[in-house]
Amino acid sequence: MSGKYFMVDTTKCTACRGCQVACKQWNKLPAEQTHNWGSFQNPKDLAFDTYRVVRFNEYPAEKNSVAWYFFTDACRHCVAPPCKDEGDQYVKDAIVVDKNGAVIYTEKTKEFGKKFEDVRKACPYDVPRMDEKTGLAAKCHMCYMRVNEGLLPACAKSCPTGALVFGDEAAMKKLANERLAEAKKKFGDKAQILDIDDVRVLYLVVDDKKKYSEYA
């Protein structure tokens, strides 16, 4: 095991949404036509043109009376990606994994047709989306073209607080464990790293994971 990992420390995220906008900018993704639906969260969900969205959820809390959780949601780049397993059954290598572990959707995803729904369902985090017009599927690709040139993914590059960091597996796992120890001291035993052995995006949360995202 090796390759690249993200570490997302939700306790340090201010929801500035630099990551969300940087993703759109680097990938030249068009803006969606949105309206305010009574939340700061917009677009409302991931989409073919939205690889990354910051989710906002507020709850009553003992400390400071409210907790406002932010969750920068995108592909987890699973160590053994179920979407690829599923997809390979229909179109071999429409979904590929590069040397760093980036799970990349190719032009061939067009050929999934109606089977795309099964690919999407295979994702435990409900990430992949298909373009209704072209049939192409898309999601975060770990900015593999930047990473191959020794650059950070656009999202990690934009993060001001160190909430979203990117690096080699060992370094990110070490960081995740250090941050977890800190978070346990400050926020208590609910602090946890989500699915640490299964994914290349290590989320640190300090409350029930469903409070951050339905599919967290």
């Binding site: 906008v21 803006a31 949105t34 009574g38």
Partner: peptide, 12 residues
């Protein structure tokens, strides 16, 4: 700026 407007489209 479409990406910023997408994130905060209307006064609230």
């Amino acid at each position: 700026q479409p990406w910023l407007l997408e994130a905060q489209p209307q006064n609230f």
